[in-house]
Simulated assay, not measured.
Amino acid sequence: MAPDEFQQAWQAQSAQTRVTIDADLLRQEVQRNQLNFRATIFYRDFGEVLIALLLIPVWFILGARTSSPWTWYLTVPVLIWMAGFMLVYRMRHRQKPNEPDEPLLHCVQRSLTEVEDQIWLLRNIFWWYLLPPSISILVFFAHVSWLSRSGGWLPALISFAGLAGFLLALYGLIYFLNQRAVRLQLEPRRQELLTLLSSLGDETTDDGTGKQIPLPGLPFAEKRLQSSSASPARLIIVLTIVILFLGFMIFKIQRGDEYPKISPFAAVRWQESQPEVKLGEEWFKLIALDGLLASEIVEFSKQTYGDKWQKRFEEDLVELLTRMGHPPKDKVTLEVQSLDSSEKQIRKDVPMTKENRAAIRRAAQQREHSAP
């Protein structure tokens, strides 16, 4: 017999080889592997949901402590969405617990369903996990860059482009790592389960409840099912915090002590959203400052600083006007109206002084101390 004929005979004999395995032992192995897979996924999901929920109060505290713009808070509904989506998805795809006498075929089918659910989750991670925070973070970066445009449009655009580029590169890497986990960990596991399921369907008629099962080419004969490691998606939350911290530090640097603490008003008081200012010893209703309507200044302060809009108007007027794109000079023009009549006045070359701002600050501190 020629060598080629010997080789063909050997391959034919190998193709007819049957591996006989005890059904109970194989079922126990599948169930044990299934429990390990469930535990890995559960603890990973639990950690991600817990971190997302804990970040919500942290977000509010950081925003209040640092007087962040309103776009900072766009990430809060994103965190709620991420945690909620994970919980709802797991509830809708919850599997029944294993039973000791459950048929082997059912165990394999259930394991296959769980693996396919996880594959779907990671393959679509861009839509439910990456895209929502990307939008909120990019909006925050754009807003910060817009507020810093007083230093020039080009530096503001460069700042936004750098932050946005870093964010997109980072999320691109995270997406790649998740797809790699699907390709190298979950897909091989799925193929092994499909092979086992096909073998059971071809060789048994009793759902694998017999004591001995002959399985041709069984993929588990020489190796155990691989346990899927935790997805790198958990890094998303940690790295998102780092990104936001970088953007926030830039914002803090830009709004630091570079703005002079000066004011043209000796004092400020309020009639709802209408500022009344003191010039010398007389009170007036403020109509405009350097051509900017007082109502526009107040509205911008509300949108930018939230609950601290009055404080910023009174104590950080230079910064407020600068962020509006109208940095004031050492002297400003005020349009005011008498409180006793409809008479309006134009006060030109009103000096912006540190003494005025210091007096406003002292008055604010006295109100804070006297408040119940």
Results as ranks from 00 to 15, higher is better:
E368R: 14
D45G: 02
G325M: 05
T209P: 08
I51Y: 11
L79R: 04
V332I: 12
L334P: 01
A15D: 14
D24P: 01
V78T: 13
H93F: 06
M249W: 05
V58T: 07
Q254P: 00
G208Y: 00
V242H: 10
K211R: 15
M352H: 03
N124P: 01
P100G: 04
P100L: 03
A39L: 04
V115P: 01
A161S: 14
L104K: 04
R357S: 13
R362K: 14
Y129H: 10
A230K: 14
S338L: 14
Q274V: 08
P219T: 11
P132S: 08
D101F: 03
L54W: 09
R149A: 15
L54R: 07
T304R: 08
I61W: 15
V88C: 00
N356C: 15
E222A: 05
P97W: 01
R255S: 14
G162V: 13
E116N: 09
L147V: 11
P97F: 02
L200I: 12
T333G: 03
D330G: 11
G152K: 00
M352S: 08
L105A: 13
L186H: 08
Q13H: 07
P328Q: 04
E114P: 00
K354N: 09
S342R: 15
A164F: 00
A83H: 02
V19Y: 10
S136W: 04
I360R: 07
Q31R: 10
T66R: 15
W153P: 05
R357L: 14
S227I: 06
L122A: 06
